[in-house]
Amino acid sequence: MNPRDLLDRAERLAATGGRGLLGIAGAPGAGKSTLAGWLVDALGPRRAALVPMDGFHLADAELRRLGLAHRKGAPETFDAYGYAALLRRLRTPRAGETVYAPGFDRALEQPLAGALPVAPEIPLVITEGNYLLLDEEPWRPVRELLDETWWIELDGEERVRRLIDRHERFGKPRAEAERFVLGSDEANARRVAPGRAAADLVVRGR
């Protein structure tokens, strides 16, 4: 499906007369944030808002307390219940009430509370993340809260190359970036792969 068709599909979700929620899922490095950001930019700030799942990363201090620092980015290192609660709130906007969603700072590798304002009149919220279609608790309710889900996929070698480059760009030495991607990130990629079959649309990344 070409970019114009994807934009048309998103525009239809924004034109239902209520608040639509579009989820973009896929393996780490597939291009979820790039596609989601492009759609929001193309639709404009009065018609769409971006709320990434990454804002629900647990802080590093909590990961250390739980003994999960080495698994950062895995499903169990997110506040899935909190994410689902935010989606429920976003589904039913209330007049005069701006919802403040958490963001994620890649330079700090930490979530940022209250970073993303979503005004009640915005007709479409786009969210993206690895685990939107993960058929495990506590992630399973997320799919039911989204009006439509897209799965983005990319050639495996290219996806891994981009992931390594991204980790290196944000401060990891090359060897450490490779170990993390080939270990943790690829384990997560295998875990989410069955979600492809549950998506409403499969998008080929570039």
Rank of each mutant, 00 (worst) to 15 (best):
L116N: 02
E157K: 15
P75E: 01
Y100K: 09
L68V: 05
E128Y: 08
A15N: 02
L124I: 00
A197S: 14
L145N: 00
A30N: 01
A49L: 03
L50D: 06
G183E: 04
A42S: 15
I126M: 03
R140V: 09
R12M: 00
A30D: 02
S184K: 13
L133Y: 00
D41R: 15
R89A: 09
L58Y: 13
A59W: 11
A113C: 09
P111V: 01
L6D: 12
L22M: 04
Y81L: 06
L201D: 07
E186Y: 01
D165Y: 08
L154M: 09
L6M: 10
I164V: 14
E76Q: 15
A199F: 05
E186I: 01
G73D: 06
P117N: 12
E136Q: 03
R174G: 04
Y81E: 11
V192E: 00
R159H: 09
R196A: 12
A48K: 06
D79S: 07
G26I: 02
D5W: 05
E128V: 05
A30I: 01
K72A: 03
E121R: 12
A197K: 14
T98P: 03
I126G: 02
D200L: 06
V40W: 05
A48T: 04
M53A: 07
G37R: 11
V203K: 02
G37P: 10
E144D: 14
A95V: 11
G18K: 15
H57F: 00
F180T: 03
W151M: 10
G37H: 11
R159W: 03
D8G: 13
F56L: 06
P138F: 06
G29S: 08
T16V: 08
E76L: 09
A115I: 05
R190L: 09
I126T: 08
V202D: 11
V125Q: 00
P93H: 05
L154G: 09
G103S: 07
G23T: 10
A74M: 02
P141Y: 05
A113K: 14
A113M: 07
P3F: 07
A14I: 00
L22C: 09
L7M: 03
T34M: 01
V40Y: 03
A36I: 02
F104S: 05
R19M: 00
E153Q: 15
R179G: 08
K32R: 06
G44V: 11
F78S: 07
A49V: 02
F78V: 04
L145A: 01
R71P: 08
K72M: 07
P102K: 09
F78L: 11
A80Y: 10
G129A: 11
R91A: 00
L132H: 04
F104H: 08
H57T: 01
G17N: 15
D105G: 07
G171S: 13
P141K: 13
Y131N: 01
I122T: 14
G171C: 08
S184T: 15
